[in-house]
């Protein structure tokens, strides 16, 4: 095979697996019996190794959707299937990263112990757990902070710790709830690239990612596909293939005509929904 052909093959968008890892069918959630539904009839699949971004205005039920996917709350109707099995409680293979890193890390544990926490029942020797934690901390770009307490670190570093804690148990599905929303713009770009690196393979394993955000540009930059949610009730109003070749970079990708086209397409979907209200 010529080098050009090789390069072309590498730059193909990730092929979608035939069998989806996660199937969401007709999912609805009402928080009270007589109240309005937070989510209504949400159906979509997530393919193995796919990076799916979920965007939508605030109040469209993004966080509710994520909590349903994780089995943290039960649906009012419909189902979430992971590897064909209904998700009723949080599966071991899932990991969740929150927007508010300062409230999600355990403040009473130092960085190393925070990251090791998910391994506590894994039957690993302490030395092995420490080694795993150090490896994953290095993977997210943190060095020399293992013994610090979370509050000593900047917001971006704390979120890296939270991502390391999510990755240490080698999850098959990584779910992120607006993980970069409270982080300054420069650090946000770094963390977006970190997420792309994680997606392309942690320890040579591809990770499937569901990334909830309200930032359409971020969604297009990161995702294979963008799921657009509309509000009141929250439901899927569009599913848009991004199809931009990987690897992506902040400068080249974001200024490419393809990027602008996909981004405008998403804005159009949202505007069309607004017009019909």
């Amino acid at each position: 095979m010529s080098r050009l052909a090789e390069a072309m093959e590498r730059e193909q968008p990730a092929p979608r697996a035939a069998a989806p890892v996660l199937r969401v069918s007709d999912l609805s959630k009402r928080y009270s019996a007589d109240g309005p539904p937070a989510l209504s009839g949400v159906t979509f699949d997530v393919g193995e190794g796919e990076l799916l971004a979920v965007v939508g205005p605030s109040g469209c039920g993004k966080t509710t959707l994520l909590r349903l996917l994780c089995g943290l709350i039960p649906p009012s109707a419909g189902a979430v299937l992971f590897d064909g099995e209904p998700v009723q409680r949080p599966p071991r293979e899932f990991a969740l990263v929150f927007q508010d890193y300062s409230r999600s890390l355990f403040p009473w544990l130092n960085v190393s112990r925070n990251v090791m926490f998910p391994l506590r029942g894994a039957g690993l020797a302490r030395a092995e757990r420490i080694a795993r934690a150090e490896a994953v901390l290095a993977e997210v770009g943190l060095h020399g902070v293992a013994r610090s307490y979370p509050w000593k670190l900047s917001g971006g570093m704390q979120q890296r710790v939270a991502i390391a804690r999510a990755l240490v148990s080698r999850p098959e599905l990584l779910l992120l709830d607006e993980p970069f929303a409270s982080i300054d713009a420069l650090t946000r770009a770094e963390l977006q690239d970190l997420l792309l690196r994680i997606h392309s393979g942690v320890e040579h394993r591809r990770v499937t990612i569901v990334h909830v955000t309200h930032d359409i540009d971020e969604a297009v930059y990161l995702a294979d596909r963008v799921l657009v949610l509309g509000a009141a009730p929250g439901r899927v109003i569009g599913s848009i293939e991004v199809g931009i070749a990987r690897p992506r970079t902040q400068t080249t990708t974001r200024s490419s005509p393809q990027f602008l086209a996909v981004r405008n397409q998403i804005h159009d979907v949202i505007a069309a929904k607004e017009a019909t209200r």
Binding site: C70, P90, R92, F94, L96, F98, D100, S104
Partner: peptide
């Protein structure tokens, strides 16, 4: 925080362990 509670749930922290470790 709800985030810590959710994290504990995601990490299969059982009832007794939750009391003592969270």
């Amino acid at each position: 925080s709800p985030e810590v509670r959710d994290t504990a749930a995601m990490l299969q922290v059982g009832a007794l362990e939750r009391i003592f470790r969270i």
